[in-house]
């Protein structure tokens, strides 16, 4: 059986990590390369970098950041934000991404997923799915949650996998940034609905949240603030997960 992945997430804008960071022992905590290198050394299984190319102005800056990250990263790197076309994805992959995450553009034009899978293979294609709780289920929201789509999150997950998504980065809009734990019923519902790996995102406060996400079927768990704030280190989280009987990379 394969090990559960623990994935720190860097939100990068203008070449800097933008979520509040009080990471210990770094000269420049806002430098994504220094932060990524520290996570790599301390046992991150993978890294997700978001929003690097969300706007046209930031695109070239973002590609430079990805190139710099690739030089130091000896673990997989998923990059997302502003991917609207095969060309956008190609630029990120050439710069050093191993996987590309698509969100809004795929909701607007689902065929994008098939185009990406045909060109790069489905193992390169991550559907970034933001879901908000609604009576009776979950709905897809886009544009950083500002816009509800009316689409059922489970139906969209299944359809996206059929089109070519090889992994789903599943973020709970309700839980994100709250530290209240992942949305476990959402995770369970999506992992039951699709055969591809699902990465839990939104709400992690400590290792017990990750353990619960894995128990709910997640293949990987993403966290930002709990690592950036220095409340938890990767070795602490991995030790706690091992103690809870979760198989993780040593």
């Amino acid at each position: 059986m394969y090990m559960k992945r623990v994935i720190p997430c860097l939100d990068v804008k203008g070449g800097r990590v933008v979520k509040g960071i009080r990471f210990q022992g770094l000269r420049d905590a806002g430098d994504p390369v220094a932060l990524a290198d520290a996570y790599r050394r301390s046992g991150a299984d993978e890294l997700v970098v978001l929003d690097v190319s969300a706007t046209v102005e930031e695109r070239s800056h973002g590609l430079a950041t990805i190139r710099a990250l690739r030089e130091v990263l000896d673990i997989p790197m998923t990059v997302g934000g502003g991917v609207r076309s095969v060309e956008d994805a190609s630029a990120l992959l050439e710069a050093g991404a191993d996987k590309v995450a698509v969100n809004t553009a795929a909701v607007r034009r689902p065929a994008l997923l098939r185009e990406l899978a045909d060109r790069f293979g489905r193992q390169c294609v991550v559907l970034s799915l933001d879901a908000a709780r609604r009576p009776g289920g979950w709905q897809v929201v886009v544009r950083a949650g500002q816009e509800p789509t009316g689409t059922c999150a489970l139906a969209w997950a299944s359809r996206a996998v059929g089109l070519g998504a090889g992994e789903i980065l599943l973020t709970s809009w309700d839980q994100d940034g709250t530290g209240g734990g992942y949305d476990l019923p959402l995770l369970r519902a999506v992992t039951d609905a699709v055969p591809v790996p699902v990465v839990a995102s939104g709400g992690a406060e400590g290792p017990e949240d990750l353990a619960r996400a894995f128990a709910a079927g997640a293949s990987a768990a993403l966290a930002a603030s709990m690592f950036h704030d220095g409340r938890w280190t990767l070795p602490q989280v991995k030790a706690a997960l091992k103690g809870a009987g979760v198989q993780v990379r040593s």
Binding site: Y2, R5, R122, P197
Partner: peptide, 29 residues
């Protein structure tokens, strides 16, 4: 249960070769 396989797994069995036992990242179907 889950495919494609995307994650870290144990590598075992060829102690005398270049590939030592350890944990490696796999992506394949």
């Amino acid at each position: 249960p889950i495919r494609p396989l995307m994650g870290w797994g144990a590598v075992r069995g060829a102690p005398c070769g270049l590939v030592r036992d350890g944990e490696a990242y796999f992506v394949h179907g």
